[in-house]
């Protein structure tokens, strides 16, 4: 099945809070983690933060998102009756309206192109409520994710609550210290993609400085199998990368 025909839900996309919730359930269901992580975080803070830096929100535009996402947006716009589109566009922010005006061709194409060529970082503020109502749900949800869970400098702080071989909660945060934690694993988004794809060995990544681990190394070494299970579970989980 081609990606165009296949339907994806928000929790298929990495990195989103919805995906993180799926990760939480997978960790919690993992027998291996239950075995290797027994005692982890009991009497001490075993919660982790995955700090993903430098998401390419400045470099990429909407049409760099997965094909099915931007195609749905394009279709959503071009398939609107022209007068409905006209009404929707009446509320467009000035710079968007000017951008559409400056393009050649029929209005639906111009409008679609203008939005598809918007920088990811600017997308949430350039998309106005009227447009969001006629956008495909997935695009609307993703914009909310971008707005709420990616910091202005392109960082995602994913917090993972771990205790005694289970995962009791996950969330994303605006800053590193929003929630208490015992450990932080930090790296560029590209490295995270390789890691959760199973293409990067977490130990090699830490040894070569691609990822940095901050926290009590006595605990990490004592529970090294549990730490490896955490990355195994992430790589075993289906995902589609937003970037």
């Amino acid at each position: 099945m081609s990606t165009q025909e296949q339907q994806f839900e928000l929790d298929d996309y990495f990195p989103t809070t919805a995906w993180l919730t799926r990760y939480q359930h997978a960790l919690d269901d993992s027998q291996e983690l239950e075995d290797t992580g027994e005692g982890w975080g009991v009497g001490w803070n075993g919660d982790f933060v995955f700090e993903m830096q430098n998401l390419p929100i400045e470099e990429r535009t909407v049409n760099d998102l997965p094909e099915e996402v931007w195609e749905a947006l394009e279709q959503g716009i071009t398939q609107l009756p022209e007068d409905t589109l006209g009404t929707v566009l009446e509320d467009a922010p000035e710079d968007v309206a000017e951008g559409i005006e400056a393009r050649d061709g029929p209005l639906p194409e111009r409008a679609a192109q203008e939005l598809l060529e918007t920088k990811i970082s600017e997308a949430p503020e350039k998309v106005w409520p009227g447009l969001r109502r006629v956008m495909p749900d997935i695009m609307d949800d993703l914009l909310t994710e971008l707005e709420e869970n990616v910091t202005d400098d392109g960082t995602v702080y994913a917090w993972i609550g771990l205790e005694d071989g289970g995962c009791y909660d996950t969330t994303t945060m605006d800053t590193l210290d929003e929630r208490d934690h015992g450990f932080v694993l930090t790296g560029d988004f590209d490295q995270w993609v390789d890691l959760v794809n199973g293409d990067l060995d977490v130990v090699e990544a830490i040894m070569s400085g691609k990822l940095e681990l901050d926290g009590d190394m006595q605990k990490i070494l004592q529970y090294s199998d549990a730490a490896l299970t955490m990355t195994d579970v992430a790589s075993d989980l289906d995902k589609r990368f937003l970037f």
């Binding site: 830490i206 040894m207 070569s208 400085g209 681990l213 190394m217 070494l221």
Partner: peptide
């Protein structure tokens, strides 16, 4: 110390 040692080894 362990982190530093790991980096030195990795390099």
């Amino acid at each position: 110390l362990v982190n530093r040692g790991a980096r030195l080894a990795g390099d």
